[in-house]
Design a protein around this nucleic acid. Structure first.
Lengths: 334, 334
DNA sequence: CTCGCTTTTGCAAGCGTGTGCAAATGCTGC
DNA sequence: GCAGCATTTGCACACGCTTGCAAAAGCGAG
């Protein structure tokens, strides 16, 4: 199409009767412009519908203002609430979020990071999978910052944010014991994510300290349906558990529904249930799930403030946050 | 910092012993390069870790490859599943999604569109609020395409995707009557969104045709908690309803929980419930909600295919999709 | 080998910005 | 009015890329 599309600083300059640099400086904070010309420029810009081209600006400044969010299972309650918090924080800091969905193949996190590099993203925040060492090196070499949330903890360079999964697992184990539970179980998926496995290990270890065994059920990938299936595995055992710690709230919801509707069990009288994440559904009156709250706002704040801070971003940093236990009625006592 | 950051096409050209244009052409599909030089370039690029700068490319081509998703309440099940589908489709078409959260102020949709213009987004998809006419004009004038999903339907220029809300409302009304229900109710929020109001109007109109009245309850903004409150309004009436159509599934979940746990009612024996959206929770065994399924994948496909299609994008277009009724057990019979 | 044709290649202009540098302007105090 | 200074302004180059254009190279036929 032959029509003139965007209006450039040049045109604004002409209309305002100033030089193009004056226009540029008007829209660059901290630049030297007299109030008079500044106003002339602003008027002309408004009249013409001018908007600074962030593509060109990013090209010049070597700083695009873009932050990539690399995430799978976007539709999941916990993930989407984290995305909400992150976009919020990013926008507060003048950044903008580029969302990359990695639900498909397995190398898709690497592909996503490549995309991030192409758009010269200032940083990438990874909520899913774990990228190749070679790619992360490429990112770092390209001056891109990396944040790993609830991912592996032995990585060089980036910021790693994790929760105190083991400590939480230990707390819930003692809570079960205090509630008089005798046969502990752990419900997990087969995803093998670091944080899920940390909860499993922590729970087993804590139980051992208290002189108890844990029976573990795992199935599929981390969601409601898997919770149901694991419930079927665990509740048909000869020694039926009377307490189960589910690796996530979604698993817990599936587990509770199966326990109640398929096995006609009463919670917490016949079995105590705990979860992790504190998704919205955990507070619904059908579940009233006792669970650990992911501090999503703190996570987001921590991540974003590290991204925008200009000093010493190359040294790797590890943040361990605390997950508060939210007491509801799926465990006796409390 | 003085270190060299990104590697440019120039450097790749030198290493490969060809001109810069050869490098450019190698990474531009449909350009004329001999297989021999092409391979030389690819090798050099791989060795140096080169990635095309999409900022610069977008600047030249006047086409950034960026599509803005403008959305509020990102953490909500329906919204997040739509985001999932949209990012998926966009990536399939070689586009990338920029996610803008408009949870905060009321003019934030306009702000978001401004941001979209700054990054020269090829298009914006709006899932929340409704932008100022002046801004949408600006977008269109700037060659940006606009998609409105479940928004107002009398807009010029953009693609509008809506569901057949009235028809769905009519279908559920007859379903209630067929189940023998006598006193119909509608549960809504106070958001006043076009689609919510269309469902309300449609339901009332259909009921009138069948010679029945509808009592309407509205509260707060569209979510679980509002559903509970509306249940308290409606179930304490002298003439307690025996059928309720909830404007969304979240409202329905809240309504069902209140009906069961606060009013000890049995569903569907004492009251039939229907929802809209078919979020994941609707299929959970605690709810088993009969509801209309938002065809999120179709919506996403429709939106994205219109965006990438190069012909005739300026004429405005309106698509009305059908919402299938998913029968579960929250209505008698079926 | 030469001619005519197609494919490949390099040159250079341009996309819309930011910014260092030097010239110009404004202001203060004599 | 003028020197001395701080502030503002314009010029011109750079950022990394695409692409039209013309020159160069390849290629088959005579």
């Amino acid at each position: 199409m032959s029509q003139k599309l965007f209006v450039s600083a040049q045109e604004v300059a002409e209309k305002a009767g100033v030089s193009r640099s004056a226009v540029s400086r008007t829209f660059t904070s901290g630049a030297s412009v007299s109030p008079k010309t500044r106003q002339k420029v602003l008027d002309a810009a408004e009249a013409l519908g001018y908007h600074v081209n962030h593509l060109a600006r990013g090209l010049m400044r070597n700083e695009s203002g873009i932050v990539c969010l690399i995430v799978s299972e976007i539709g999941t309650p916990y993930r989407s609430s984290l995305i909400r918090a992150l976009t919020q924080q990013l926008q507060n800091s003048g950044k903008v979020a580029m969302l990359i969905n990695t639900d498909r193949s397995d190398g898709s996190v690497d592909l996503a990071l490549r995309q991030a590099i192409r758009y010269r993203a200032d940083a990438s925040i990874i909520l899913s999978g774990l990228p190749d060492k070679s790619i992360t090196d490429l990112c770092l070499k390209n001056g891109q910052r990396l944040v790993l949330i609830n991912r592996d903890d032995d990585r060089e360079g980036p910021l790693r944010i994790n929760l105190d999964d083991e400590e939480a697992a230990a707390r819930i184990a003692t809570a079960f014991v205090r509630a008089g539970c005798k046969r502990l179980a752990f419900a997990n998926s087969e995803a093998g994510t670091p944080s899920l496995m940390a909860r499993e290990r922590g729970f087993i270890a804590a139980a051992a300290t208290l002189g108890m065994d844990v029976v573990v059920g795992r199935y599929g990938h981390t969601g409601y349906e898997a919770g149901r299936i694991v419930a079927q595995q665990l509740l048909t055992l000869k020694e039926r558990p009377d307490a189960v710690f589910c690796a996530t709230d979604l698993l817990a919801c599936g587990f509770m529904d199966a326990a109640r509707h398929q096995f006609s069990m009463s919670i917490p009288d016949q079995i105590c249930v705990a979860g992790f994440d504190d998704i919205e559904q955990a507070s619904w009156s059908s579940y009233q799930l006792t669970t650990f709250a992911q501090p999503v706002d703190t996570i987001a704040r921590e991540a974003v403030s590290w991204l925008v801070e200009d000093g010493a971003a190359l040294e790797s940093r590890s943040v361990r946050l605390h997950a508060d236990l939210v007491w509801r009625t799926s465990i006796r006592g409390g």
